[in-house]
Each structure stands twice: as C-alpha cells, then as structure tokens.
Design a protein around this nucleic acid. Sequence first.
DNA 1: CTGAAAGCGCTAACAA
DNA 2: TTGTTAGCGCTTTCAG
Lengths: 345, 345
Amino acid sequence: VSTKPQLSKPTITDVARRAGVSKSLVSLVMRGADHVSPGRRQAVTKAAAELGYRPNAMARSLVQRRTHLVGVMVSDLHNPFFADIVAGIQDEAARTGYKVLVNTGNREVRGEEDAMETLLQLRADGMILTSPVLDDEVILKASREVPIVLVGRDGRAPSVDSVTNDDHAGAEMAVEHCISLGHRRIAHIDGGHGAGAPDRRRGYEAAMKRLGLGAQVQVVDGTYTEEGGHRGCLVLLAQHPRPTAIFAANDLAAIGALNAIEESGLKVPDDVSLVGYDNTSLAALRHISLTTLHQPRLEMGRLALSTLRERMDDGRGQPRRVVLAPTLVVRASTAPPSPDRARES
Amino acid sequence: VSTKPQLSKPTITDVARRAGVSKSLVSLVMRGADHVSPGRRQAVTKAAAELGYRPNAMARSLVQRRTHLVGVMVSDLHNPFFADIVAGIQDEAARTGYKVLVNTGNREVRGEEDAMETLLQLRADGMILTSPVLDDEVILKASREVPIVLVGRDGRAPSVDSVTNDDHAGAEMAVEHCISLGHRRIAHIDGGHGAGAPDRRRGYEAAMKRLGLGAQVQVVDGTYTEEGGHRGCLVLLAQHPRPTAIFAANDLAAIGALNAIEESGLKVPDDVSLVGYDNTSLAALRHISLTTLHQPRLEMGRLALSTLRERMDDGRGQPRRVVLAPTLVVRASTAPPSPDRARES
DNA sequence: CTGAAAGCGCTAACAA
DNA sequence: TTGTTAGCGCTTTCAG
C-alpha cells in the first residue's frame, strides 16, 4: 500500500486565518457555543462555508478521548434478521448523538476477531456484537477495554450486557401450538451452535415433557441454514411413522425442511405441519407462509443501544440482561394433522 | 451526551517506558520494521502484550494523513443484493490492507447525506456508494474531497467512477427470452427512480421494437419494492387481453407481481410468465423459482474496491466506468404461453 | 467574549 | 540501530 497523502483539506487554522480570528473561536462556533458575538460568529460561518471546511473527527476525538462512534459487528449481512436490529440501533443512536459503523466477520471466528480489532483500534466508544460465534473469552477480554452488548446471545460475564429474546419460551409456544392443533409426534431440527439454539432445543423438550409427550421427543441435528434444515428433515421423513409436525430452529432451516418435504412428494401442512423461528421476511412470503416466532428486532436494536449508553454515558458497572418475549405468528404452514395420520401414534 | 472519558488505555509512551526504550522504537516494532535488534524487539513486544497495548488508529491516521479506511454506504441493508457486494468489497479490501466500514441511509436522501458526512468527517480514504438515491450534485461535491465509486448507478461526472451491470442489455435478454418462448404481449413493470431502472425500461422498449413488437410495448409504474410490483401488476391484469408475460424491474417487484397474479386466481407460468432482475436469494427459493437476470455481485464489489484503489493509491484522475454483463437464469416462472391465450393477440 | 499555549497519541525526519 | 524533536488538527484550560 502506498503512502500517498490526499490533497490536504482545509483545517481549523485556515478558517481562523480567513475569518481573522483565533482557532479557539472557530472551534467554539463549530460546536455551536452560544456566547459568541453575532458578528464573529457569522464571519467564521462564512469562512468555513467558503473553504468547505469539515471538522476532522479524528483530531477531535483524539483530544476529547471520545469518538461518539458505536461499532456494530454483524454476524451475517446475508441474514435479513440483522437488518432490523441495525435499524433499531441506528434509530436510537441518531436520537442520542452517536454514529453507527457496521462491520462483519462473515460467520467466521477469524473474521469476527478482525472486525472487533478494527473497531477497538478506532476507539469506538462502545460496541454491539450480534450473534457472534466468537469465544466468550475473547469477548470478555475486549469488554475490559470498551463497553460491549451482545444481541441474540447471552453475555455470560458481568462486564458484558446482552439483549435476547426468550428462546426457551418461544420454543415452548411452538410446541403448544402444534399440540393445540392435535399433533403428538412433534420433532425438532436443532440449530447446532447457533446463538440461542440450545435454549430453543431445551424449550422444545421441556414443553413436550410438561404436556405429557416426553416419549415423543425427537431431535435431529441441523444448523441455522437451509442446508441444515434440509438434511435434518430428510432424516425425520425416513421414519415410520413419521412426525406430523416439525419445529425447525429458525426460518432458514424451516425453508430447507419445506423443500425436503415437497421433494418427498408430501405437502405442508396437509401431511406435515412446519414451524420456524425469527419471523424473517421470508416467512411472510405468500408462497412460503410459515408459522413462526417473531422477535421484536427493532426494539432489540434500540434496547441494545440504550443498554450500551448506560455504560458509555452513565458508567453503569452492573451487568444487564434484557430478555424480550417472542410472539407466535400463525400462518399457513400449520394445520391439524389429517385424521388417518393422527391415529397412527 | 455526557463527556465522561473512558478509563484511559495504555499509550505508546507507557510501552516505551516499560520496555526502557524510546517511543519511536516502539512505533517501529509495532509496524513490523525489520531493522530492530532482536533483543529490543522482544522487550517491546513483551511490554506491549503485558499492558494490552493497542495502537490508536486515530492518532496514527492524524499524522499519516491516511486512515486506510474505506467507507461503504449501503442503500438498504434489507436487500440481500447488497450483502454480496459488501462481501466482494471486503474480500478485496482484506487483500490490500484496507478496513471496510459500512453505513446506511435507509433509502432516504437525508439519511444518505448523514451517512456520507460521517464517513467524510472520519476522513475515510475513499468511499463506495451502492445505489444511492442522493443527488448527483451532492456526490460530485463530495468527490472533490475523497475518491468515490458508485455501484449500481452511473457516475455522471469525471471525478466519480462507477461499477454497474449492463441494465439495458439485461432487459433485452429478458424480452428475447419471452419472445423465444412464443410470447408477444410482454409488459414491463418499471422501477421508478431506482438505480438502473430507466435503463432497464429502455432496454425493454428497444428489444420490443427491434423484434417487431413495438405496438405491444406497455409499461406500468412500479418501484423496486414488493408493493410496487404488486400494484403495477394489478393494473396489467385488469386488461383485456392481458399480457402473457411480465418483466418486472427487479426480483422484489416480481414477487409482488407473483402475489398479485395468484390472488387473481391465475397461475405462473401457466397463465402468465414472469421475469425478475438481480437473481437475489429469493428468486432461487424452490417455491418462487423465478426466471431472472443475474448480476455478478461479488465481482462487482471487488471491482468497486480496486477501482477505488486506483485513485487512492495510484492517483488516477481519469474517470473509470466498469460495466459487467448480466446473465439470464431460467427457472420455473417462464414457459410458452398457453395456445388459446397466444391466439388472442 | 476572545486569544495563547499546551497537549491528545502517534509518526517522520533528522541526528547521534 | 536508536533517540530527539516536531508537529498532524483539534479542544481545553487559563489569562486578558
């Protein structure tokens, strides 16, 4: 990489000279101080405009020891789930004078580490990590240098806050919904190491047992991806009798399952009912119309930022765990089991 | 916003003191200089590790007058189209020592201006704007302060580069495909002011005329959204005879059209064939299976960054317009018109 | 209300 | 090879 410097931009000194005042006065005016004489204020404003002056945020932050920057490490830019989270963060940031800068680690540990490092070197005032795959230890270490809020994953250390939805409860709702429709053979395709996946699995198991279907519990391996859902579903469909309802770990996996079901010549919901998780825009597509659990993403984003602010601005030291309630969205992928199928159990 | 400074982090001076050397030596070691004695190098490395020292990127950039930061303003984080563009940018950036920071303007002029301003004040070495809705004038002005590359939209000024796909040619391919299947009444739902939309429209018209269907040209208003496609499609379906094929401005609009068609009790492709644009992940869903035009997104991202580098590193002053060829992806949403329908023309 | 001086953390000549 | 000296552009006391 070459070291060619850019054409130098006007500095505060240039403005001061042109307006015939001191640097300090220009600084005051640029920051909107109120006790500056109208005449000089105008002279400064005019000079700045003529020069196209723009304060250098880095020089400013260097002396203030504060950047007013919040770094957001997004686990996967391809997942529409995160778009709303970021929107919520941005929303709240704009209201409170913070700038949001987004980064991504492409679902890889190494990538996420690099992304964090960039933000750390930039001296962001705080950072938000969405569903990171990073080790707890790495996060804990970074949290000693800058306030960190996790979204979608629990912050297992007192120095790390988190904003999540109640995955356990959401999974229970999925099961209860299926049971209320008359299903008994309800299987789960799990989400592997994905953020929240273990809780969804435990919630599924707990609800099954609580409602007297402990013997019907069946979990197959999967991931938070279409392929994972597809694979897991094929395993389930190969059984006799096969499940009449399937709860997939997230919407993406549910779509994979949907494909597997149709490839097998079966229909949703006639032969198999299907439930997803996340209520992404995909689930709402008319052709998919997936029953799923909604997470209040926008609000989660807003809460992530306000939680971060409590540490950045108010110096809170106690950990904070925000857990929101998911809500069931019933669409066309679930229905009562067909009479002959239900009998088989 | 309060002005509470963070707990101060170790500086280069702290490391120098602890290692018993000068700041400059620490600086050299941190940057991996080769002519440093092994003993001192190790002392510095050790001190830095013990202190948890991390160079302050802002202080460094202030003196170097270079941030090694590339700002990417993404028009809409919800559109999966941009995820691959960003991935391509990041890919190429990682190879060449640049850090990528993403921003978004939420499809609004004001938001995009703020996003640009943040990047400008941060003194990013260059910026990439994806499908901005910003005025040409604003972009032109900014391009005098920092190299800018537009993606998905043409850079109408010599100081602004661009990377696009050949929208005109892509639209022609869509039309040719429909005609080759036997369609004659082929309508277009346009994309309004969306980046590239006017070219797609012109391409559609040109191909229709060139192939002797000038009299059949029909364009209805739309946008790059599901709602736009839905609305436009309803207008088309209300006609007698209605079109046997519809070319929507992008995939999102095509999905809106798809919904409109099915709501009207018609089927795709039996009653109406449908073509989209962009080949987003949505188009590939088994349940959608949309014939569409693919843009080489990853490559476009990579090219955007390398085009930017030519200005940042090599000081190129001539404008550069990269135009890539789209490719037709045929799926299940297009088929020959049913015999009785075709006759009606 | 305004200006002068000091310094944020770092790198870049220039000496030694 | 290593240390010293100046700033980068800005804000912040502190005088006036």
